[in-house]
Lab assay of single mutants.
Amino acid sequence: SQVHIGNTTFTFDNPEKAQKYAEKYAKKKGLTVQKNGDVWTVE
């Protein structure tokens, strides 16, 4: 599972961890999370 934030990609061994990280980061920065398969993009 991966989380894309700008030009940075974070890889997680667990989809739940990836989703939590993406949502927490997005909330903190006032951004949105797009999910595509097991990839979350914060923008």
Rank of each mutant, 00 (worst) to 15 (best):
H4N: 10
G30R: 04
T9F: 15
G37R: 03
Y21L: 06
E43L: 13
K28N: 09
N36T: 11
T32W: 03
K20Q: 13
G6D: 06
A22V: 09
G6H: 11
K35P: 01
K17Q: 14
E16K: 10
N36K: 11
D38T: 08
G37D: 07
G37V: 03
K29G: 06
T41R: 06
E23S: 04
Y21H: 04
V3G: 01
T11S: 09
T11G: 04
I5W: 04
V3I: 04
K35W: 09
W40P: 01
A26V: 02
N14E: 09
V3Q: 02
K24I: 10
K17T: 13
A18T: 00
Y21D: 03
I5A: 03
N14F: 04
Q19S: 06
K29P: 05
H4L: 11
T41P: 00
K17D: 15
L31G: 05
K17F: 09
F12P: 02
Q19A: 10
Q19R: 14
K20H: 09
A26M: 05
K29N: 13
A22Y: 04
S1R: 10
Q19Y: 11
H4Y: 05
K27L: 08
N14C: 10
D13L: 10
D38P: 07
G6Y: 11
N7F: 10
F12R: 00
H4A: 06
V42K: 00
N36L: 12
K35V: 06
G6A: 07
S1K: 09
Q34I: 14
D13N: 09
G30C: 10
A22G: 00
T32E: 06
H4Q: 12
K29T: 12
K35E: 01
T8A: 11
V33N: 00
N7D: 09
G37K: 05
V39D: 12
E16L: 11
F12S: 03
D38V: 05
V3R: 01
V39Y: 07
T11P: 05
T8I: 14
V33D: 01
N14I: 06
K29Y: 15
F12Q: 03
K35M: 07
Q19M: 09
D38R: 06
E43K: 11
T9V: 15
L31D: 00
N7C: 15
Q34A: 10
K28M: 13
P15C: 12
T9G: 03
T32A: 08
K28F: 10
S1H: 14
A22L: 10
D38M: 08
F12I: 03
T41A: 04
D13I: 05
N14Q: 07
Q2A: 08
D13H: 05
T32R: 09
E16G: 07
V33W: 06
P15H: 06
K35N: 06
A18D: 00
H4R: 15
L31Y: 12
N14Y: 05
K20I: 12
W40G: 01
L31V: 07
K20P: 00
Q2N: 08
T8V: 13
V3F: 03
Y21R: 00
Q19P: 00
A22I: 09
A18P: 00
A22H: 00
Q34R: 14
E23N: 04
V42E: 00
F12A: 02
V3N: 01
E23T: 04
E43T: 14
S1L: 13
A22T: 01
A22Q: 00
A22F: 06
S1Y: 15
T8D: 10
F12M: 02
G30M: 02
K24N: 14
A18R: 00
L31P: 00
K27W: 07
A26L: 07
G30A: 04
V39E: 10
N36H: 10
E16T: 10
K17Y: 10
E16N: 06
G30S: 04
E23D: 07
P15M: 07
I5M: 03
K24T: 12
P15L: 07
N36G: 03
Y25W: 10
T32Q: 09
E43R: 07
N14S: 15
S1D: 04
D38F: 11
Q34W: 10
Y25D: 03
F10Y: 13
L31T: 04
K29M: 14
E43C: 12
T32D: 05
N36E: 11
P15S: 08
V42D: 01
D38S: 09
G30Q: 05
L31E: 01
G6P: 04
T41D: 05
G37P: 00
A18L: 00
I5S: 02
N7Q: 07
T41V: 14
T11V: 13
K20F: 09
N14L: 07
W40L: 06
